[in-house]
Amino acid sequence: MEFDFLSPVNDELLDEIKSLNPQTIGANIRLHTDRSGIPELEGVNVAIFGVRENRRAERPENKPDFSNLRKQFYGLFPGNWKLKLADLGDIEPGATVEDTYFAVQNLVESLIKQDIIPIILGGGQDLIYAQYRAYDNLDQMVNLVNIDKRFDLGDAEKMISNQSYVGKIVVDQPYNLFNYSAVGYQTYFNSQDEIELMERLFFEAYRLGEVTSDIALMEPIFRSANIVGMDLGAIDSAAMNSAYFNSPNGFNGREICALSRYAGISDKVSSFGVYEYQGNLGDLANMLVAQIIWYFIEGVNYRTNENTISAKKEFTKYQVPIDDEILVFFKSPVSGRWWIEIPFLSNVNTKLKRHTLLPCSEEDYLEACNQVIPERWYKAKRKNEV
């Protein structure tokens, strides 16, 4: 793989690794080093790389440095994983921000084509745009889940920034986006215009309090995602112990790690980005981000591959008549997870080629039995019709 825009892990970290317990992640991960170059990716399941780009962030002078984050992550012990990991080093900022986007897009696309899940450590969250564009040549509609206090829709007519990339994703061709879900938004950080636009586009939005009151209800949201992005600003400042993230409200350490694990365990998620890493965060923040990455990989390790046609043949089917509709639910006998069918409209030009199973919860099935149509099904069906 020729990616000469990647810079290696620095030599000081290599010296640190030599002193680690031989069972730690750092002693077993394949590394991009100055001496040996980019590692062999045959058999690798998850590849981590940093992107030191933040020119479109609020504080562009705080160029991210992931050295201490790597030190914290390498020192962790893996779970009972069957996965092979690689650290590809960092993408340095290009001559223009668009050059950086191009590098990220190409690297993510290449890794996905090799069945390797990229974990992107990034500066400005506008890098999600490049993560999304990596799917342009993969011939599929994608669902994007964003863990963030803001929707980041912004003004699509203006230059892309870390708070306006979703608008660009919606309006720029090619159109690959089927659904956008915002997890953990806080109303006072979002204008009413943006809240109303989310409704008009049939996108999904879950308030911070709604998520934290029963975090397990978010599992189906991540199960339908292809791309997951996380803004570190969604975490409360106390958990990060950093003045940069200046919001007293947000997810705590346990909650953000639970969401990360849901992202990892989803059979569909093929790329994961952690953004708004600024400068060189303190030890506590770096340890939390290291654990966020750890929980994502832990989730990947325990995937059940229920997204295959053969697995779906084993599902138990339930039909629920509501008014003039018949809702079709499926339940996995292995994991106990639920799905609901979105019917394909043959007269509509869409990349949804067949009946699509939308992840849902048992509560959705029970509500349907009480003649209440699940909101996620309604929004997905409406998006298929427009």
Rank of each mutant, 00 (worst) to 15 (best):
D87T: 02
P93A: 06
Y74R: 09
R55S: 08
K82S: 13
K84S: 13
A95N: 07
R70Q: 02
P78N: 12
D87G: 00
A86D: 12
A86I: 13
V97R: 04
F73G: 08
D90Y: 01
K71I: 00
N68V: 10
L76R: 11
V104I: 08
K84V: 11
N106P: 01
L88P: 06
L88G: 03
P64Y: 05
A95Y: 08
D65I: 13
A86R: 11
K84M: 11
E98Y: 08
I91S: 04
K63Q: 13
F73D: 07
P93E: 08
K63N: 12
A95M: 09
Q105D: 10
T100I: 01
R55H: 10
G75F: 03
D87R: 08
F77H: 15
F77E: 15
K71Q: 14
S67D: 15
L83E: 13
E98W: 01
A86G: 13
P78D: 06
N68C: 04
Q105G: 04
P93V: 06
L83I: 09
G94H: 05
E58A: 11
L107M: 02
F66T: 11
F73Q: 05
R56S: 14
G75Q: 14
T100C: 01
I91V: 10
D65G: 05
Q105S: 12
L107F: 01
D99W: 00
L85P: 08
G75S: 14
W81A: 10
D87K: 03
Q72D: 08
E92G: 02
R56C: 13
D99F: 07
L76A: 01
D99S: 04
F102Q: 13
L85M: 09
Q105F: 01
G75C: 04
R56H: 07
G89W: 07
V97C: 08
P60H: 11
Y74W: 11
L83P: 08
R59C: 01
Q72V: 04
W81Q: 09
N106S: 12
V104H: 02
V97T: 14
A103Q: 14
P78T: 06
P93Q: 08
R56V: 15
G89I: 05
E92W: 02
R55T: 11
A57W: 07
T96M: 00
V104K: 02
Y101P: 00
Y101F: 15
R56F: 10
A86V: 05
E58G: 08
G94T: 04
K82T: 15
G94E: 02
L69I: 05
I91C: 01
E98S: 07
P78R: 04
L107E: 04
K63E: 12
D87Q: 03
N80P: 01
F77L: 14
V97P: 00
V97G: 10
G79T: 11
W81R: 09
L85E: 07
N62M: 15
E58I: 15
N80Y: 12
N106K: 14
